[in-house]
């Protein structure tokens, strides 16, 4: 859906690092006048057994959908180390024409994987993937996450 590159801040052990698509700017989605933001924070830690010797744990996520003018429409957030809402949640923004009372509120969600967000874009919003094998690719990358995640 995009050819933009992921940039990462590093892989220091036990340190919060960051990754961002398109150097932190919204990324244009193929065949749609829409943009997405993908930003995550993660930690590399030592792990035992099948998860080891190293594992990468998500520390926070930010997946957003923007309109053609790059105004935010919806955003899935989880940022437990920031003041305020510590559970995963969803925001609707004014540009989505949502009812005013829903703007700025934190709608509770379960934990959302990047794969779930991408699948939502492809299946529900008909964003065209760049690869025909997108479905097995997402299943393959999501598999270890589903198997080893410590919470939902």
């Amino acid at each position: 859906m995009t050819r933009d590159v992921l940039v990462v801040s590093g892989s220091d052990i036990n340190k919060v690092e960051s990754l961002a698509l398109n150097r932190g700017s919204p990324s244009r989605l193929k065949n749609k006048r829409l943009y997405m933001t993908v930003k995550m924070q993660y930690r590399v830690t030592k792990a035992e057994g099948v998860k080891g010797p190293w594992k990468v744990s998500t520390a926070a996520y930010f997946y957003a959908l923007h309109d053609a003018e790059q105004r935010e429409l919806i955003a899935f957030h989880w940022h437990p180390e920031t003041e305020g809402q510590k559970d995963p949640h969803l925001h609707f923004y004014g540009a989505s024409n949502v009812a005013a009372f829903l703007e700025k509120v934190h709608l509770p969600t379960g934990r959302i994987s990047l794969e779930q967000f991408l699948r939502f874009l492809i299946v529900e919003l008909k964003v065209k993937p760049l690869r025909n094998d997108w479905e097995p690719v997402l299943r393959r990358t999501e598999g270890p996450y589903v198997q080893h995640r410590s919470w939902h």
Binding site: S18, A20, K39, Q41, H77, H79, H91
Partner: peptide
């Protein structure tokens, strides 16, 4: 801090 503009930048702090 949960404002979208602030969050967009806060996520990049490790950089």
């Amino acid at each position: 801090p949960d404002r979208p503009e602030v969050m967009q930048v806060a996520f990049l702090l490790p950089f």
